[in-house]
Each structure stands twice: as structure tokens, then as C-alpha cells.
């Protein structure tokens, strides 16, 4: 038996092991330095080339362009969401006609560049002017903005249909079997049991799709819609000031980062019951 009659004095923690100055650290510092230098260079360039007149005349234009971009994207995401529902059900249907029709639709819009689709709608359908005049739709296809809205809606519907289908199929079969055994009708069990679980799965892909659409919408500038990119191009062609592109880049980055963080918060909030 032993009795402790003396406590060990509290001691300072051992000194931290000196981190060796590795090549990795050197490289990391150099690269961070490069980013810093680029940032400072752009800032200095902006300060040197600062022109209040230019800022006053083109700043609001860029912002209104941003408004056009956001309107276009939100409308096409919304309309695309409506259109994606029948497409997603077509993809899951056992009816061969519905299946193949939606399959071909989705494959076409996911397999071709959105810029080619936009050209197909704007220049391609626009070349049928007499026919469109006859059915009274010419006012729609005359405007580049409506054409862009149509092309983007059709495009995002294909992507959203795939997201929706994947999410619905990711819900385990036992869920619908459980609902059926409780005597719920298929409609109720879909709306109250399958869909809420599917939409949580679909949340992140939907966020990515919105970000992709915001980035993809820059191409409307080519068909003379003055969105953020279009206004930037117009400002650049008038001033030959390369900085315009940096301002546009800043705005795009801001929007995308805000959305991304918003989505992280949203996802954390909506899945808090799934945390263990």
C-alpha cells in the first residue's frame, strides 16, 4: 500500500514541436502571395483608372443588367420547375411513349450546349416569320428576351426533371409500402410522404442548378439581351476599359457566393431533424 503525500506541481505544457519549413509551406505562401498580388494589382488598377463619370454612367447600367439576369433566371427556373414535373413522371413511367418522349427530350437538352439551343430558338424559329405571323406568335419570337426565356426554361426543365426523378427514386420503397399499408391513397402518400423526403434530397442539386443557370445566362449577351454580361460588353466596347470585366466578375461572384451560403444555411435548417 502506498500513500501519496506529495502532489506533483502543475507544470507548463511541453513546448510545441517546431514545424519544419517544408517545400509545401513555401509553395503555399508563394501561391497565396500570387493571389494577394493579383487582388492588390486589380485594386490598384481600379484606383488608378478611377473615373467618377464612368462609374456614374455605367455603374447603374451594370446593376440593371444584373436585374435582367436575375429576372431571367428566376422566371426560367420557375417555369422550368412546372415543366419538369410531367417530364420526371414520364421518365419514371412504364408507358413506352411517355418514357421515350421524355427520355429524348432530356437527352437532347442535356446533351447540347445551351448556346446552341438559344441560337436554335432565336435564329432558327425566328426564321419562320410568315408561319409565326400567321399563328400570331411573332411578337414572342421577335424579342430576344422572350427567346432566351423560352430556351432557358426548356433547358432547365430537362435538368430539373433529372433532379426530381433521382430524388423521388432515392426514397426507399418501404416508405410507399408503409403508406399503402396505412391505407393512404397513392396521391396522399406521394404528396405527404414521398415528396417531402425527395425534396430534401433534391435541395442541393436544385441549388447547383440555379447557380449553373446564373452562370449560363451570360450567353444571352450574344443575342443582344442586355443582362449583366451584355451591359458589360457594351460598356467595354464604348470605353475599352478592361476593368469592366472585373466589375462584372465581382458581381457574378457575389451573387453565386450569396446563393451558395444561403443554400448551406437552408440545408442545415431543413435537415436538422436528421442530425444525430
Amino acid at each position: 500500500m502506498s500513500v501519496t503525500d506529495r502532489l506533483i506541481e502543475p507544470q507548463a505544457p511541453p513546448p510545441e514541436a517546431a514545424k519544419p519549413y517544408t517545400a509545401e509551406r513555401l509553395l503555399g505562401r508563394i501561391l497565396l502571395g500570387v493571389w494577394l498580388a493579383a487582388g492588390v494589382g486589380i485594386a490598384i488598377g481600379a484606383a488608378q483608372g478611377w473615373d467618377t463619370e464612368k462609374f456614374v454612367s455605367y455603374g447603374p447600367k451594370l446593376l440593371s443588367g444584373l436585374g435582367v439576369t436575375l429576372t431571367l433566371v428566376s422566371l426560367s427556373i420557375l417555369f422550368g420547375a412546372f415543366l419538369s414535373v410531367p417530364l420526371a413522371f414520364g421518365r419514371m413511367s412504364r408507358n413506352p411513349i411517355a418514357f421515350w418522349a421524355s427520355y429524348v427530350y432530356v437527352y437532347f437538352f442535356r446533351g447540347t450546349p445551351i448556346i446552341a439551343q438559344l441560337f436554335l430558338v432565336y435564329y432558327g424559329l425566328g426564321s419562320f416569320r410568315p408561319e409565326l405571323d400567321a399563328v400570331g406568335l411573332w411578337w414572342f419570337f421577335r424579342e430576344a428576351w422572350y427567346c432566351a426565356l423560352l430556351a432557358f426554361t426548356l433547358n432547365t426543365a430537362a435538368y430539373q426533371a433529372e433532379i426530381l426523378r433521382g430524388a423521388i427514386e432515392s426514397v426507399p420503397r418501404g416508405q410507399s409500402e408503409g403508406a399503402a399499408s396505412l391505407g393512404l391513397s397513392p396521391r396522399i402518400s406521394f404528396l405527404k410522404i414521398i415528396l417531402p423526403q425527395a425534396l430534401i434530397v433534391a435541395l442541393r442539386p436544385y441549388g447547383n442548378e440555379i447557380i449553373l443557370m446564373i452562370k449560363g445566362s451570360a450567353i444571352v449577351a450574344i443575342v443582344t439581351v442586355f443582362d449583366l454580361m451584355g451591359e458589360t460588353r457594351r460598356a467595354f466596347s464604348r470605353t475599352f476599359d478592361y476593368q469592366m470585366y472585373f466589375w462584372a466578375a465581382l458581381l457574378y461572384l457575389m451573387i453565386v457566393e450569396i446563393l451558395r451560403n444561403l443554400w448551406t444555411v437552408l440545408e442545415r435548417r431543413l435537415t436538422r431533424h436528421l442530425k444525430r
Partner: peptide
């Protein structure tokens, strides 16, 4: 985060 078209122009 940047649109590909903007990257291309830059």
C-alpha cells in the same frame, strides 16, 4: 463562380 463566357473574355 464565374460564368465560363466571362472567364473566356477575361
Amino acid at each position: 463562380g464565374l460564368p465560363e463566357l466571362l472567364t473566356l473574355f477575361i
